[in-house]
Structure formats: structure tokens, C-alpha cells
Design a protein around this nucleic acid. Structure first.
Lengths: 195, 195
DNA sequence: CTCCTGATGTCAGAATGCGACATCACTCGT
DNA sequence: ACGAGTGATGTCGCATTCTGACATCAGGAG
């Protein structure tokens, strides 16, 4: 018999999600989570730097997926199109990986608690940095890459949000590409001119 | 004689900045800050919701300034241009209000500590929300406003960063307008086509 | 003069997060 | 087969952040 139950990290993540949904984020302590996972508070903090992190373990994989797609994109595609294609692909990957109910529950939690939104935002900022670096590796000039990353992220955020909150959800990729079109519209907008 | 020294809030902010610069953010406790301001830890938390907030008191004024400029912009200007003009004006306002050394020291602190970057990001997200609402008040459709706000914020971030980190600083407004041009370039980029 | 208000202080305590050390089943080399 | 080492976990103690409840007390309103 194994010395410990396996997958302590996974158990902690599940216990945390369950408890957050049951009682809310603020009213569940790390001690509660650890107890439900049959572990110690101290052990929780060995796996997660702080209480928030338990909700963000997936962000590393997401980032890797996106960066890989950027590297694999056709070499003459303009930066923003590279990013949007990568986000669309990663979105589809995520869609297949996670239950929509899970994604929605997590989204609701993060939206509701400023503490968690802060963490989400810094993860996304890290993602922007990673995509920027991936563009630079393709030969995109540094100055362009940073801005493109920021714009691409805006497109992704918008598309993702539309996906999660739409009543009859269609595919993420579609939402993301629609968001890109919207961005193009906003940037191209010219002042109304009487004629 | 007044019962207490005046401007407790201001004293706390100054004490905090000084100590953060002297010993770094992490190694100064709230108790330290309060002591230097001749106040109690408890009083600190009456003025600031948490330790980080002491560095962000200005963001309310900044937001107000920007929103006012948006409201006052010529009615037929396209959303993104409205935003960039407002940011440029607010940037100039900030430039006149604060010592460059202060802005830089604060920027260095925030850049260095993830905790503070998180707070900064959520303040900026709040700013995006406020600018979006201001656009909607001008009659911009909701869907457009949100995206325009996000893009405008990206322009502002880039311009501000360029301003703070450039060795021989020129005016913020110029940097912001330059960032807008860059964004237009990125969005307009077409795939390289042999002909 | 008295009452009230509002800024501050005092105290106790919960929760987060960390360093140091203990435990103990399992594994590997011999 | 056996002893040393490894690695995940537990235990303990502590600093720090943040909150609730109550106390204090100068100055202003009546």
C-alpha cells in the first residue's frame, strides 16, 4: 500500500473548489481545505504559495499551449493574427479539457472576489509577457510584440468572457475570432463627418 | 491647539513611501509605518483597507480626471481617439502634479513586488471600467465601449511606461500618442504577400 | 455646563504564511 | 537482507495582516 493517498495536490484543488462553492471563498479557511483533503494546513502551503493559487494551477498549462501554438504558426502571419489563432486553438483545447460547469463556477468565484480577480489579472499579464516573448522568438520586433500581446490578450479576454457568460454557449474559438473583428472595427473607426 | 496632528492620512502615505524606499516593501510592517507617522497600526487600517492601498490613493483622482476629459471631448470623435486624448491630458495633469522622482520610485516599487502589481492591475481594470462607462454615457454602444476601453488602456500603459523609463523623459502626452500610432500599426498589419 | 461627535487608542483574536525540525514508509546499494 | 538516504507529510512556534468591540477624550452644539 502506498504510504500516502496519491495526488495530494489534486485532492487539495478539489476540496478547495467544493468548499468555495459550498460556503464561499472568504468563509473557507485553508485549514478547512486541508482537513477535507485529509492533509495539514502546512502541507497546503507547500503545494500552493497562498490560498488564491489553488484556483490557478491550470494557468501554466494554458500558457504552454498558447506559446506552442504561436511557435507553430505560419511564418508570414502578422503578429495579431498569430495570437488570435493561438488563443482560439487553446480555447478549443480548454473547452475539451474542462467541464463547462467547472469553468463557469470558477469564473463566478473570480468575478466575485477582488482578491481573486487580482490574481487572475496578474496571471493574464504573465500570459501577455509569454506571448510577447513567443512573438519575439518568431522575429517580431520587440516594440511591436509587446503591444500585439496586449491587444491579443484583450481579444482573448473578451472572447472568453462571451463564451462563459453566453446562455447557449457556442465554441470559444468563434467568440474569440468575433472579438478580433470588433477590435479591428474600433481601431479603424473614423470620426463622423458631415457631407 | 488641535487635538491631533492634522492630515493623518497624508502622514501615513509619506511614512509608508519613505520606509518602502529605505528598507523595501516587504520588510516594513504596517506597525512600522504607523509608528513613523505617530499613529497606531489600527489607525492605519482605518484609512487604508490593507497595506497595499497606501500606495494607490491617487488612482481615484486620476480616474476622475480621465472621465471628465472623456465627457468633455468633441461629440463626433471616435471612441479610441476620445480615450487617447483623455489619457494624454490626464498624463499631463499627473506630470504637473507629481514629482518625477516620486513617480519613478513608486513605479519601481510596484514593478518589483507581485503583490503591488496585482493591485495596480486591478486599479487599471477599474479605470477601464470607468472609461467604458464614460464612453457609454456619450452614446457609444456598449459592446464597442468595453473593447475601446481595453485598447485605450493598453495605449496608456505603454505610453506611461515609456515615459517613466525613458532616460531623458519627454512629455507623457507625446508618448501616449506615439503608442496609439503603434497600436494602429499592429492592428493594420497585413500578412506578407509575394507579388 | 453638559452632551455628543469623531478621530484615535487598546485589546483580543482569527487567518495567512513561513522556518525549523520530526517522522516514517519506501528504495537503493551492497 | 539490512542500513542509509529520500521525500512527502506532520508538528510547533511565530510574525504579520486585518477585524471587531470597546475605551478615551478634546472640542463644538445646544
Amino acid at each position: 500500500m502506498a504510504r500516502w493517498e496519491p495526488d495530494a495536490r489534486g485532492r487539495l484543488e478539489k476540496a478547495a473548489m467544493d468548499l468555495f462553492i459550498e460556503r464561499g471563498y472568504e468563509r473557507t479557511t485553508v485549514s478547512d481545505i486541508a482537513a477535507r483533503a485529509d492533509l495539514t494546513e502546512r502541507t497546503f502551503f507547500r503545494y500552493f504559495a497562498d490560498k488564491r493559487e489553488v484556483l490557478f494551477s491550470g494557468s501554466r498549462d494554458l500558457e504552454r499551449t498558447i506559446v506552442d501554438h504561436i511557435a507553430a504558426a505560419p511564418p508570414d502571419l502578422p503578429p495579431l493574427d498569430v495570437l488570435v489563432a493561438a488563443y482560439a486553438a487553446a480555447g478549443a483545447w480548454l473547452e475539451a479539457l474542462r467541464d463547462l460547469e467547472y469553468v463557469r463556477a470558477r469564473y463566478a468565484l473570480i468575478t466575485k472576489h477582488a482578491e481573486l480577480r487580482e490574481r487572475e489579472l496578474i496571471k493574464l499579464a504573465g500570459l501577455a509577457g509569454a506571448t510577447s516573448a513567443a512573438l519575439i522568438a518568431r522575429g517580431v520586433p520587440e516594440a511591436t510584440a509587446g503591444l500585439a500581446a496586449e491587444l491579443g490578450l484583450a481579444v482573448f479576454k473578451r472572447g472568453f468572457e462571451r463564451w462563459v457568460t453566453s446562455r447557449k454557449p457556442r465554441d470559444v474559438a468563434g467568440h474569440i475570432r468575433a472579438a478580433l473583428a470588433d477590435v479591428r472595427g474600433v481601431v479603424a473607426a473614423a470620426p463622423a463627418r458631415p457631407r
